[in-house]
């Protein structure tokens, strides 16, 4: 089964290599990995999409936790979460195709971010299915280049937590 794992790590050099080395060294697979800064400049967040049965996923999360530079590991698959990926797709456009390209972009609320007489570059954000769908529709027009960010994901705020916070805020206001 596919799992999306969030890994909060120290923002130090070599950390990405420790994490990717762990996966290759132990024969775990990485389907995608994205990493970026957080609000705290000393900390980065990685989103790793991986594949495995329960035992493998347990090993992956435990082994990640064991790395000294890893602060926190969350398997988002166990929770409600929102995931997104962005793709930039450069397509060849003959005159007769340009309208179709725009139509596809429009249907999926994608943006044209660069345009030349023979190409469009389309930016699309969404979950994996949406991106795959766009790619499939654009493929007949001739995709020249394609780049995907890999998935990022964030846990949905639990309703209870939201309710508790609202309650707290109400109390503060009423004081």
């Amino acid at each position: 089964m596919q799992h999306i794992i969030s890994v909060l790590v120290e923002n130090k050099f070599g950390v990405l290599s420790r994490v990717s080395g762990l996966f290759s060294g132990r024969g775990f697979n990485i389907e995608s990995l994205s990493v970026g800064p957080t609000l705290d400049p000393t900390v980065s967040m990685m989103t790793i999409v991986t594949q495995g049965d329960d035992r493998i996923i347990e090993q992956i999360t435990k082994q990640l936790n064991k790395l000294v530079d890893v602060i926190k590991v969350v398997d988002l698959t166990e929770k409600e979460y929102v995931e997104r990926e962005t793709a930039l797709i450069k397509i060849n456009t003959r005159t007769e195709d340009r309208a179709e390209a725009l139509r596809v972009a429009d249907i999926f609320r994608a943006k044209i971010v660069d345009s030349t007489p023979n190409t469009y570059t389309i930016e699309i954000t969404g979950d994996v299915k949406k991106i795959d769908a766009v790619i499939n529709l654009l493929r007949p027009l001739g995709i020249k280049e394609l780049i995907r960010t890999g998935r990022i994901a964030i846990a949905r705020e639990e309703i209870k937590a939201v309710a508790a916070r609202e309650e707290k805020e109400r109390k503060v206001v009423s004081k």
């Binding site: 035992r55 435990k62 082994q63």
Partner: peptide, 11 residues
């Protein structure tokens, strides 16, 4: 003491 040792080879 090492959580990764547990459930690795044997449950």
């Amino acid at each position: 003491i090492d959580p990764t040792s547990i459930h690795k080879n044997m449950s």
